[in-house]
Amino acid sequence: MKISNKKLYEKVADVIILDINEGRLNIGDRLPSIKALSESFGVGQATIRESLNALRAMGFVDIKHGQGTFIIEREEPQFNFEAISGNAKDIENLLEVRNIVEVGVARLAAKNRTDEDLLAIESALKDMQLAINENELGEASDLKFHLAIADAAKNDILKQLLLNVSDIMRHTMKETRKIYLYTKSKSIEKLYNEHKEIFEAIKSKNAKLAQSKMTFHLEEVEKVVLNNIRHSDS
């Protein structure tokens, strides 16, 4: 299947996810080699690698060096976004969970990150900038950014906690970005800069600064989302 579109890695990932959901790929199956996938999709090998890294971050595959990429059982989210979407308190609770987990994740990422981790985080950041340039919301690259930081933290339990709520995170990120887009005081560019500052702190291996920047970012998101919900309810 040939693909011609911007953000090719997302399109490749979407096709593989569809194959998993429709039973053409099963748990334990090994995907073809990067070279074979590149030829099959008609894209470069770098695009395939980025797609596989995104699928790994979302919990669909496990990449075993020297062995290949395998489909794994993905744990379903523990929450129902539709059930909480209109309840300000429940959304506040969910944001608090993110705050507790991701602040620690950012601190650990600054301490434990590798150069490869930095490339993955920076790739997500570049996708965010591309989304701004093309007037898109960019929630997929936002999720990719946060999951890449979880990878860099080198703590499988913390990473799994985020993966368990990754679908809900993407929903809330999409809604948050809509609010930012239409709120004069909170622009998408400001949101991008908050992410960039988190990246720079992790890059410099400044654990305290990374923790502080993540705290500030999540608190800003919480204020914008909850204020919007309460305003809508009033």
Score class of each variant (00 low, 15 high):
N99V: 00
I100T: 12
I100N: 06
V101H: 05
V101P: 00
V101S: 04
E102N: 10
E102R: 10
V103T: 15
V103C: 13
G104F: 02
G104N: 15
V105A: 00
V105L: 05
A106I: 06
A106C: 06
R107M: 08
L108P: 01
A109G: 10
A109P: 12
A110V: 05
K111I: 12
N112G: 00
N112F: 04
R113E: 04
T114R: 09
D115V: 09
D115G: 00
D115T: 11
D115W: 02
D115Y: 07
E116P: 02
D117K: 08
D117H: 15
L118A: 05
L118D: 06
L119R: 13
L119A: 13
L119M: 11
A120F: 01
A120T: 03
A120M: 10
A120I: 03
A120C: 04
I121C: 03
I121M: 09
I121S: 03
E122A: 02
S123I: 00
A124S: 15
L125M: 12
D127I: 02
D127R: 14
D127M: 13
M128F: 07
Q129T: 01
Q129S: 04
L130T: 14
L130G: 09
A131G: 05
A131D: 14
I132C: 00
I132L: 15
N133A: 09
N133R: 11
E134H: 14
E134W: 04
N135W: 12
N135E: 15
E136M: 15
E136L: 11
E136S: 10
L137S: 07
L137E: 01
G138A: 06
E139Y: 05
A140P: 02
A140W: 04
A140G: 07
A140Q: 13
A140C: 01
D142A: 14
D142G: 03
D142T: 14
D142I: 02
K144D: 08
H146L: 05
H146Q: 07
L147I: 04
L147Y: 02
A148N: 14
I149C: 09
I149Q: 06
A150I: 07
A152R: 00
A153L: 08
A153R: 13
A153E: 07
A153W: 10
